[in-house]
Design a protein around this nucleic acid. Structure first.
Lengths: 140, 140
DNA sequence: GTAGAATGTAACTATTATTGTTGCATCTAT
DNA sequence: ATAGATGCAACAATAATAGTTACATTCTAC
């Protein structure tokens, strides 16, 4: 199991858009850097657009960031591309035996822990901005 | 995406074994509480056995915990059932364009963050013992 | 207002992981 | 020896991912 590359690609896309303020960041151009199909890029920019992170319009070439890189966190991107459902990073088996004390109560005992663990991970993503990622890319 | 129920089931199994010190915790009996097939249980107890968490022997009915519930952490169980590969909770797209400054360096920029985020999640699991889970189950 | 170029999106495929299942070999205690 | 358990290989059903084709929609430039 692992979290879809959609998240890493979305970060890649946002970083690219920021680094290309002079040119037009079309899905085809972005796809060239990510090395995938333009439709995959459009799917993701569509999600980033719905989340208000990216501006993109039908018929108009090029996506842009909707706000500054310092105001975009990795958590926002992560939520935008929907790689992990709300509070369900960990899945719990359904229908344990209700006639067994353990079966009846196991979900209630572990779900709060799973929730805390997921939150801890997401808190790290919340503390990292797109600006920091961009600064991690050598200007070359 | 979400982490396999194998982890939740493994916790369920360990809790059950502890709550059943008088009886024999056979795969069939455990399967009755989890509400699944005994082979699924054997697969998981096999993994827990390899990790030294559970004692179980071919031909001998019943699994037991290899050490006290206070000495078993959720992180140990999590690692035992191999639900997330080492340092790869998040996956990164392969083969970004090496001729693009962003493509060439994006992996190096995001992997450390992904690593930190995963570690933060795992640290929570490390702080929770099986004993705490067991105590969260009403005696009824 | 039309042509060209881009985005949006549906539909399909290949691949992979999960979960459940059957069948059978192996092992142990009685 | 036998009964009953575990270990394990093999297979099916399901679901998510990633890539691809095709085409409708939209806008800009002319």
């Amino acid at each position: 199991m692992n979290i879809s590359t959609r998240f890493a690609v979305a970060i890649h896309i946002c970083t690219l858009i920021d680094s290309n303020k002079e040119g037009k960041s079309t899905s085809e151009w972005i796809a060239g850097s990510v090395n995938t199909n333009p439709v995959v890029i459009r799917r993701i920019t569509g999600m980033l657009h719905k989340a208000g992170i990216v501006d993109v319009r039908p018929g108009v070439a090029g996506a842009t960031l909707a706000r500054s890189t310092a105001e975009i966190t990795l958590l926002q991107i992560y939520k935008a591309v929907n790689v992990v459902e709300e509070d369900s990073l960990f899945s719990v088996h359904e229908h344990p035996n209700p006639d067994c004390p353990v079966g009846k109560n196991i979900a209630g005992a572990i779900i709060p822990v799973f929730s805390l663990a997921q939150k801890a991970m997401e808190n790290v993503l919340q503390e990292v901005t797109l600006e920091q990622i961009v600064n991690g890319i050598p200007v070359s």
